[in-house]
């Protein structure tokens, strides 16, 4: 078995930009490519002064020895990665696969729902169900046609694919919950719904399926630090129990998750995160104006690109 950890980090072997905010990184990590299962996540540190951010694995290829992450540039770290992570550069730390893999059970007919940043990580689940012989209905949602990606990949693993856009510029107009309703109307025998996306979307999905009593699995991505159960920052309320999403999840029964609690806890560090983002953008602006003169040292950290 090859030594998995190159001393100088984890190399990015491919990158694709789906839109101004969404980008894909394919990272060399042969051991993880072999170990990863649908539903698992990684924790990434861009550089040694970076924060540890959890990202759900969007794809893995044991033959190529790579894992794929699809990232939305929303905060300081993800925007900085968008600017710096080009092919050939290395990430300081990538650890995983973390979390309990999704149980690809005996379900005969499943709906795999991905919204926004959840579209990518729902893909391995859809593929997993397809491989297990289930009839897979994909429901993927975007704000508009320009933000769409991976439609072809989903078509290849879904028996049916319902695309939803907020403005109707592609597929049906409406939220993914509309897509779920359509699927339920057409198929009364759905065994399971799997939904990944922003908490408000997963809450909507759980509420859509609740009256039909269809088992609904959601994948939670709360604030975490270590990802190994040590800090407890990712604790979530599941029914009357408190669970740690990193080691007890990230998949949970959507009908039991206290989404309001999850959403209020997600904004815990908002003020600091906002401050970091503004500072970062200010630095970028300064760098933009000063670029012609010389390499600017205002980003007070050593470059970790090499």
């Amino acid at each position: 078995m090859p030594n998995n950890v190159p001393a100088s980090g984890y190399r990015i072997v491919a990158r694709q930009d789906f839109s101004d905010v969404t980008y894909l990184l394919e990272i060399e990590h042969p051991l993880m490519a072999r170990a990863a299962r649908p539903g698992q996540f990684v924790i990434v540190m861009e550089h040694e002064r970076g924060e540890r951010i959890p990202l759900t694995i969007a794809d893995f290829d044991a033959a190529k020895g790579t894992i794929t992450l699809v990232i939305q540039a929303v905060g300081k770290t993800t925007k900085e990665m968008q600017a710096n992570c080009t092919v050939g550069t290395r990430l300081y730390a990538v650890v995983g696969p973390m979390g309990i893999p999704s149980r690809i059970g005996a379900a005969k007919k499943v709906v795999c729902v991905g919204g926004g940043l959840g579209v990518a990580p729902i893909y391995p689940q859809a593929r997993g169900y397809r491989e297990s012989g289930a009839y897979v209905i994909g429901v993927i949602g975007f704000r508009n046609r320009d933000l769409m990606f991976w439609e072809d990949k989903f078509r290849a693993v879904c028996d049916e694919l319902i695309v939803c856009t907020d403005d109707g510029s592609a597929g049906i107009k409406g939220l993914v919950t509309e897509g779920i309703k359509q699927a339920i109307a057409a198929h009364p025998d759905i065994d399971e719904v799997v939904a990944i996306g922003p908490p408000i979307m997963m809450k909507g999905c759980a509420e859509t399926t609740r009256p039909h009593k269809i088992k609904t699995i959601v994948s939670l991505n709360p604030v975490m630090v270590d990802g190994t159960g040590m800090c407890g920052g990712c604790r979530v309320k599941i029914g009357d129990q408190v669970k740690f999403a990193c080691v007890d999840g990230p998949d949970f029964d959507g009908h039991l998750v206290d989404f309001d609690d999850l959403m209020s806890r997600l904004v815990r560090y908002k003020r600091a995160e906002q401050e970091a983002l503004e500072r970062f953008q200010e630095t970028c602006r300064l760098r933009g104006t000063a670029e012609t003169e010389m390499e600017v040292t205002s980003l007070d950290r050593p470059s970790t690109d090499g």
């Binding site: 002064r49 924060e51 300081k76 560090y269 003020r271 600091a272 995160e273 500072r279």
Partner: peptide, 10 residues
């Protein structure tokens, strides 16, 4: 040492 290090703490 935030914001020289990226991890926030309130």
């Amino acid at each position: 040492d935030f914001p020289n290090f990226d991890t926030p703490l309130m």
